[in-house]
Design a protein around this nucleic acid. Structure first.
Length: 201
DNA sequence: ATCAAGATTACCT
DNA sequence: GGTAATCTTGATA
């Protein structure tokens, strides 16, 4: 079996919506103390500050969102509701203010570690299997992603993505984004059809 | 200095 | 279906 290739700069520095659709099916990897946590990306949402009122960058650059104005290939992590972190992939060229929220992942490696992080103790994995990473806050908790990871370069080797075959169009569902109040009609949520790890609503 | 809102989740009835 | 939890950021003064 050949080892999948790490996605390079050229993957990320393209149009946000294009990258969002192609992110589905790719493997998200985080190396933590020598162990690997990984999973397949099954649900994402695109945000583009140029036209999209729901994007954090819509009102211009701030201390919080400045990484979104870098060129693609960095991690944008933010804290919300006093409770959760959310994890985004910065895209497109310098100055665009674009990123993609990772909403759900299908766990592959390090599942026991993820369960421990989610529940703070050992649990019956089978029972919570579909509840570990089926939402943006849950993904960050399971993968132990927090403000320390703000701005990480995805072409490095702590957090990165692995190339996978492109999905067929018929495997991708397009819909409106979840949990926002502005620009609600933009069709910028993408998920893998019939995948049980996609967040509900 | 103060304040309102938030790209969510878990737990309640 | 409703809402408490909990705190950072960014805007306004």
């Amino acid at each position: 079996m050949n080892t999948p290739t790490k996605l390079g700069k050229e993957f990320y520095t393209r149009n946000t919506v294009t990258v969002a659709k192609e992110l589905l099916g790719k493997i998200f990897v985080k190396k933590e103390n020598g162990i690997y946590l990984s999973g397949k990306i099954v649900e994402v949402e695109a945000y583009d500050g140029a036209t999209d009122e729901a994007a954090h960058t819509f009102g211009g650059m701030t201390e919080r969102n400045k990484i979104m104005f870098n060129d693609g290939g960095y991690l944008y992590v933010y804290f919300t509701y006093g409770v959760h972190f959310c994890c985004n992939i910065v895209t497109d060229k310098q100055g665009s203010g674009t990123a993609i929220l990772i909403r759900a992942i299908e766990p592959l490696e390090g599942i026991e570690y993820m369960a421990k992080k989610r529940y703070g103790k050992k649990i019956k994995i089978e029972k919570e299997k579909f509840n570990l990473t089926n939402g943006p806050g849950k993904v960050c908790q399971a993968f132990n992603i927090n403000r320390k990871h703000y701005g990480i370069d995805l072409t490095g080797d702590s957090i990165f993505l692995l190339e996978q075959p492109k999905l067929k169009k018929s495997e991708i569902v397009i819909s409106h984004r979840i949990g926002i109040r502005k620009s609600v009609d933009l069709p910028w949520r993408f998920y893998i059809k019939d995948n049980p790890f996609v967040s509900k609503r």
